[in-house]
Write a protein that binds this DNA or RNA. Structure first.
Lengths: 209, 209, 209, 209
DNA sequence: CATGAATGAGTATTCATTCAT
DNA sequence: TATGAATGAATACTCATTCAT
């Protein structure tokens, strides 16, 4: 009715879409994807049910969009953390910090992602992308441990990955009760002890060998 | 009197109940509890939709029963592994072996359990039981690390817990691609390296060796 | 297995059938026909579900049988009460007493029957029979009031019928709180006052006519 | 903004809700609450199965709503009939007329209500309300008979109640075959005959006349 | 004759999605 | 563009009835 410029419409669109996504993320994360209905999202976002379908093809598409953004943001953050780090140990510490910062900053994203990781039949293509990214990271970590001269770089990489994921899983489950910062410090200390200093660290202290 | 003896009926019941439970476990684990319908279970078990209700009060009761059995079996296995181990390091190794054996033997159980751990609004009383068991184990591990003379037994206990859970999560997600046995060996070796010998060890103290 | 004579079998049959019927009546009356399951009846009667179908074709047949017996018993009782009463007022009093005695003695029957009377689609042929019997009674009552010289025998008959059914309905709903005996006495007194003595009773107290 | 105005939506809602309620009432009354399925209501109302749940929380809520409206309407009608009547006999006549008018105007409501009165386990809170209302009426009637100088006001009140309920039950069961209007006139005449004139009358007082 | 395991049609209810306006 | 009423397929669960033994 009232004359609105294209920009205004576009701004409204952006805002509505963003609201919907953010509300949906929160609900998906806290109640689970299956237990969150479109009606609930619409109500919480203060829009009509029908409007959702102007922005997203389906509930699954909404989830898809949210996840993709999270993954990209995560990748971006990781990238940033690793920039200009050429020392393997530094890289490892960077990955550690980046991972923990990520799960801390985007708690809802990761809670949702983790929950979905254990459900088949949901969003297989997101899973594929995720798996590829994870594989890439694992490979990078593997190569770092090689550079660090670890005896069994593969197992060491898996172990490190298990630590990171284990910590994240615990944090997601326990929330603020979990001593996430202390753990971060502790893990980094351990890494330094093993691989730092004169490289005389126990595990992978290999160069002396 | 009855042309079918009590024993016959009992045998039939046993068999049907077992079939339903096993089929349900498999489907719950692979597709998720919420995404598995009674119809699907019935079809996969080659029985009628209604039969489940001869054995279980509800879908939730079916899940409940399955989980409780898994938990008890798990507790039993852990008990067994820890019998007659009074040396702290031995205990730790026992826990490691038991945990990994458990997730290996009862893959579906643990996949299901893990998935449920990340879902809200499901089977809260099982969650409660599980949390209590986990707390007990954490406390035991904490006390083990105290006995082992760890400087920061709490963080060390959390770290060890993160490793175990991280490994299990990876195994659950990757399946047979994951080098579970190698990881077990590696973790145990690490434990021995850290705390073996005079027992005064800790990570990175390696130079004494 | 053990040799049993035909008579023994027959006796068992009789007993089982009677038990089932009596248990079913009680359950139907107290919980309603639709809310009573075959399983519940079988359990309460201490027989197997399957056995029921040896005696009755279906749940509906069971109800049917129960109702028919009740109706016949009712008719018999009425007959008895009316025997050898040739004075119209006596007949009316007899019907009153018989009706009230019936509902009192066979409380469950009448509770069930009343409940079913307000449900369509149940046992239409029983309804038909019942309606015929009621019509017969109404006609008889009508003729009694004619003999008593009532001005409007039809309406008087309906009024009397309404009183009887109203009392029964109240009794069925209130149970022992209802002063059934007092009401019986009162109604009979009223009848005598109206039609008794020289026939100068109030209503239809024909001398004014 | 919205191409369908609030008023339009409201009108649609009103209409749909009214249709569903009216169709449901008819079916509940003729087939019984338990024997009427949501599917049947939807089919008869020419709407989808799910639509009912846009307006009512459950089948029970639908029944509840229907009954409450009937009860309120009934109470209102009774009130109206009793306004400005201070003479006890007039009151009694008013109650009579109101009751009969009510059952005549809202045949389906009262058929349903009566049927439910004989069913266990249905809508207990409506039953409670109804019982309270009935008790209030009974007390009022009792007090009227006291004022009228009846010798046994309690029994007389019960008798009158039985007449009213008996007539209603007959009308509900026989439908238009029942001479409801004639009965109304007749009952009122009887009341006048008994208690009219100097107001000193009571049943059986007739011989003094 | 007697059992109770098994069946499957039927029930109430939910919810992603469509569509007239 | 935005609304929310309407749809209908899907879900968990019930229960009269059948049947192998």
């Amino acid at each position: 009715m009232s004359p609105k410029s294209k920009e205004q419409f576009e701004a409204i669109r952006q805002k509505s879409e963003a609201t919907i996504k953010s509300v949906a993320l929160e609900l998906f994360a806290s109640k689970g994807y299956n237990n969150t209905s479109i009606s609930q999202i619409a109500k919480a976002a203060n829009v009509s049910k029908g409007l959702m379908y102007n922005y997203f093809d389906s509930k699954e598409d909404l989830l898809h969009t949210i996840l993709m953004e999270a993954i990209e943001e995560g990748a971006g953050a990781m990238e940033e953390f690793l920039q200009n780090r050429h020392d393997p140990l530094d890289e490892l510490i960077g990955i550690t910090k980046a991972s923990i910062a990520m799960v801390k900053t985007n708690f809802h994203y990761w809670k949702l992602m983790t929950a979905l990781a254990f459900q088949e039949n949901v969003i297989t293509d997101v899973k594929d992308i995720l798996e590829k990214k994870q594989e890439a990271i694992i490979n990078q970590i593997f190569s770092i441990f090689e550079h660090l001269g670890a005896k069994q770089p593969k197992l060491e990489a898996y172990l490190y990955g298990a630590i990171l994921d284990g910590v994240m899983v615990h944090y997601i489950n326990m929330g603020e009760d979990y001593p996430l910062d202390e753990m971060e410090t502790y893990i980094i200390e351990e890494l330094k002890r093993k691989y730092g200093g004169g490289g005389e660290g126990r595990i992978g202290r290999s160069k002396d060998e």
